[in-house]
Design a protein around this nucleic acid. Structure first.
Lengths: 265, 265
DNA sequence: CTATTTTATTTGGCTATCCTAATTTTTCTT
DNA sequence: AAGAAAAATTAGGATAGCCAAATAAAATAG
């Protein structure tokens, strides 16, 4: 903590005349074991988080999709990408999209951790639903100090998963393995338990509620239509048809209730 | 809510050539009855809060003190003051310091409200002390949405006072009257109850703890030395001497435990 | 009441982040 | 494979908030 993070140095200028100032950032160990980390702007963090999300969805992050997601112009994205690349958070092949480096991935996972812990904390204490507090969590993840996050983590009982079954990245950057397999790949005829709903879109969650599906529901896949068609499954005494896209966002593990459970209590 | 707050307009230019852009802010009713308010930057809010605090301490806010408190240079303060004056948050007489307008006072009170509610919420839920979470509250007061603040307010049971006895400004900008009178003006010989400790400096609070004084303590002023000298008082079975400065930060109300109490439960 | 010191302001610059418009590269269509 | 459309980049500017240095006003000391 008492370690200097950003120093302004006066170095001899390569040009004639007097020295010039430069900003040296001693932050090699970005998210760290050292107990300190480089302070990033909210803007930079948002870009890194968006790149992380797009890499999961599309395998790469394109300038256009980033611009849409962040609600800025493509020119701004290109500019920021260059900056992120120069700082070592992403690899950029011009006209080919960006990918996070390990360093960037660390930052993204830290943000996911913060986001999920804040969301969980506020929903527990204030009894608010996900969509009521998502916008706040989005802002607060940049603002809350590390020490407060750790305190919240303890308060919640050091959870490994959030209420939707998604893992909460650990402080060291490791992530608990996802329980189960996507519903659209679950073997036909087998019985399974819904372990995770990877999407947090409130409308999608409402849809699932209408189908009476939730984390912990026991289901059996009855039939899968070809060409990414709907999937027929038994849940309780009912038979449900669910689209392929929706099914791919649900993870199921076999057996009754084993595997890892949501938060811990 | 669906009311536009900030519009970018293209107006005819007063100079030759084409039109120019301007930012029109429809925020006359700054903190308001309308359910919406103008979004201010964290920086602006910090200046307004600092001016508010300095006006209470010194009757006016000087450029120098603001610079010290905000940890910026005086040139930056002058610049921001001009901006705040142009937006109607402060009255500025050059070389004479600044004063908040009613509009600025509203903003400051809203920030105090947010700050105290966040602090109270975090200390209740996470069992942290004031000095552990002050820094976070300082940041979060700018970040938390109005709706979340209201939810926190309800969760806490709509408190009128914080744990130190300071009133929490109401949403409409009104403030509950301070209970009691400053200890240095309390009549000699009278019995009273400590109602408020207006300062939140952790060292000051530790000092009071050492003297075994806290909100609710019953005391009797025994003697007041002249020329702002120390004040002698009885508390329980002990006799305590307390400096004039410290005494002025403590408010006492007469009687045993009447008046308003800290939060409500 | 003048000289010095302190406080405040002005001027000119810097960086981060965004923008529009123009240009270049890639991809799609036929 | 050529031309059109889409995606990405570059170039040039704007704004907010900060700073250092120069200047101006007010306060203070002799």
């Amino acid at each position: 903590m008492p370690f200097p993070r950003i120093l302004t140095l006066t170095l001899p200028s390569p040009y004639e005349g007097e020295g010039f100032h430069t900003r040296a950032i001693f932050g090699f160990d970005v998210l760290g074991t050292n107990g300190w980390k480089v302070m990033l702007t909210a803007s930079i963090e948002d870009y890194i988080k968006a790149i992380y999300a797009l890499e999961i969805e599309d395998r790469k992050a394109s300038t256009k999709k980033l611009a849409q997601r962040l609600d800025v112009r493509m020119a701004s994205v290109t500019g920021m990408i260059k900056h992120l690349a120069s700082e070592g958070y992403v690899k950029h092949m011009p006209y080919r999209g960006v990918h996070l480096t390990e360093r960037g991935r660390r930052v993204a996972l830290d943000l996911v951790r913060r986001h999920r812990l804040i969301e969980l904390f506020l929903s527990r204490t204030l009894a608010l639903t996900w969509d009521e507090l998502h916008a706040d969590a989005e802002v607060l993840e940049h603002a809350v100090s590390d020490s407060l996050i750790e305190r919240i983590y303890e308060y919640l009982g050091c959870p490994e998963f959030d209420p939707h079954g998604s893992p909460i990245p650990r402080k060291d950057g490791s992530v608990a393995p996802q329980p189960g397999v996507p519903l659209d790949q679950f073997p036909i005829g087998a019985k399974g338990t819904i372990a995770e709903v990877s999407d947090q879109d409130p409308e999608f969650l409402r849809y699932l509620t209408k189908l009476k599906l939730a984390i912990g529901s026991i289901i059996r896949v009855r039939e899968r239509a070809p060409f990414n068609g709907p999937i027929l499954l038994d849940s309780g005494s009912e038979t449900i048809a669910i689209g392929h896209d929706a099914a791919s966002r649900i993870r199921v593990h076999s057996g009754r209730a084993g595997g890892r459970r949501k938060s811990h209590n």
